[in-house]
């Protein structure tokens, strides 16, 4: 939702010629840190998310995996992903990941969105959809490198995790953080969360998880939802978490390159037409009759007639 108490650093479909609300000078970047090594897959965070946000998704069907609901929807903003894997030694490993919006520093959803103000990025780093401004075009789905936004079949507006922007704005942590019984989810300033992550990564490494590390992908400028992964060298093990996410070059081409080229095309076409018209004038028709029938006798009397009628 729109937060009058927040500075806004980006607003969808809005040029930067006039400043956005920036009166506050002390807003901190926040971050949620999800330590997958501590997650037991209890889905308490999913319940807390539904409760706080008043979301009640339809009861689905078992599709043969523990993921439940089977996917993110307009009414399910976070899902625990369960991925089984056999490691090099043939030992079974269960990789869990709480999936949801990453609150990218360079959000592809916001870049793609054509509706002014339908997506805001606050100075604290939260990327929030303003659903009443959303037109339901689905461009955000194409823009997001993480396949997060979903459009409701009921109301044709896009939805995703808000990072509980309403709670954060009044100094509370997101509902999932408050609920998590194992302490796998932490919330604080981005700097604090990076420090915490560094400690956890060290612990994990000292216990033999050499690949442990922080997932804060630089390709999208870093994120405000970060993971501590036991296999940070292979993020895609965790339910196709992109190894190196970035806004697709196709989306960049469309939004950053084609737009100015298109604008130039318009200016050139209109200016070209105008200059041509000024230069050569209207292409009028010479209504005097053709020269060739003059040889024929009866045209001698016809020609003046035609001219007379035209006049």
């Amino acid at each position: 939702m729109g937060m009058q108490s927040q500075d806004i650093i980006r607003r969808s479909a809005t040029n930067g010629l006039t400043p956005l609300p920036q009166a506050r000078s002390h807003e901190q970047e926040v971050a949620k840190l999800i330590d997958v090594s501590l997650c037991t897959g209890c889905k308490g965070c999913q319940v807390a998310c539904s409760e706080w946000n008043d979301l009640r998704d339809e009861i689905g069907h078992n599709v043969g995996v523990y993921d439940n609901p089977a996917n993110l929807t307009a009414e399910t903003w976070t899902v625990i992903r369960f991925d089984e894997r056999e490691d090099e030694a043939g030992k079974l490993e269960w990789l869990l990941r709480k999936e949801g919006c990453m609150h990218c520093a360079e959000p592809g959803c916001l870049k793609a969105c054509p509706s002014p103000g339908a997506i805001l990025q606050f100075a604290n780093g939260i990327v929030d959809f303003q659903s009443e401004q959303c037109i339901g075009c689905g461009y955000c789905i194409a823009g997001c490198p993480f396949d997060i936004p979903r459009i409701s079949q009921k109301d044709n507006h896009a939805y995703k995790c808000t990072l509980c922007s309403d709670r954060v704005a009044v100094g509370q942590e997101p509902a999932c953080v408050k609920t998590c019984p194992t302490g796998a989810i932490s919330f604080g300033s981005k700097a604090e969360m990076k420090d915490l992550a560094a400690t956890r990564v060290q612990e994990l490494q000292s216990r033999g998880h050499e690949g442990a590390g922080l997932y804060d992908p630089a390709g999208v400028g870093g994120t405000h939802v970060m993971y501590v992964l036991t296999h940070a060298d292979q993020p895609s093990l965790y339910h196709r978490l992109p190894d190196n996410p970035q806004i697709s070059p196709v989306v960049r081409g469309w939004k950053e390159w084609l737009k100015p080229v298109g604008a130039l095309g318009f200016i050139a076409t209109l200016a070209g037409a105008f200059v041509h018209y000024m230069g050569v004038g209207a292409n009028t028709t010479d209504e005097t009759p053709p020269p060739e029938p003059k040889s024929k006798q009866d045209n001698a009397e016809h020609d003046p007639n035609e001219n007379g009628r035209d006049a």
């Binding site: 469309w254 298109g262 095309g265 076409t269 209109l270 209207a282 292409n283 028709t285």
Partner: peptide, 29 residues
């Protein structure tokens, strides 16, 4: 993504072409 890009490119090209078409209509009395 490719379809969105193609839609935009084609839409722009078409509108520019139609502007040319309209201009020709105005120019050729």
């Amino acid at each position: 993504r490719l379809a969105l890009l193609a839609h935009s490119v084609a839409g722009l090209a078409l509108i520019l072409l139609v502007i040319g078409h309209i201009y020709m209509g105005i120019w050729v009395r």
